[in-house]
Amino acid sequence: MIDHRRNRFVCMALGAGLALATGGSGAVAEGVPSTITAESCTTCHGPGGIGSGAIPRLAGEPAADLSAALTGFRDGTRESTIMSRLTGPLTDEDIAGIADYFSSLGAPAQ
């Protein structure tokens, strides 16, 4: 399930890169590269998503949990201080990509 989604995202990310590299109009067909979006997330959530003080860790969390949280913030079904203000434009593909990205970073050795 998770593997399937991850593979789908990779194809999509590579596809978007190729579309642009071959001189497409610049419009990304599906989703936005999570490598770029994640660079905003880590400004609060810590380098590599390790968390910071009261701000939760993302690295190594199950992708399904991260997806559910982001979807809830976006749709207004999950309460937040700020996340609802930052997730509005995310598509389901974007959310899957971000969730897989942070999930794949894993936890540091304890």
Binding site: L20, A21, V28
Partner: peptide, 12 residues
């Protein structure tokens, strides 16, 4: 030699 990707940028 590739073209950059169009992502989201955030500020808080």
């Amino acid at each position: 030699g590739n073209a950059p990707e169009r992502g989201y940028l955030m500020n808080t």
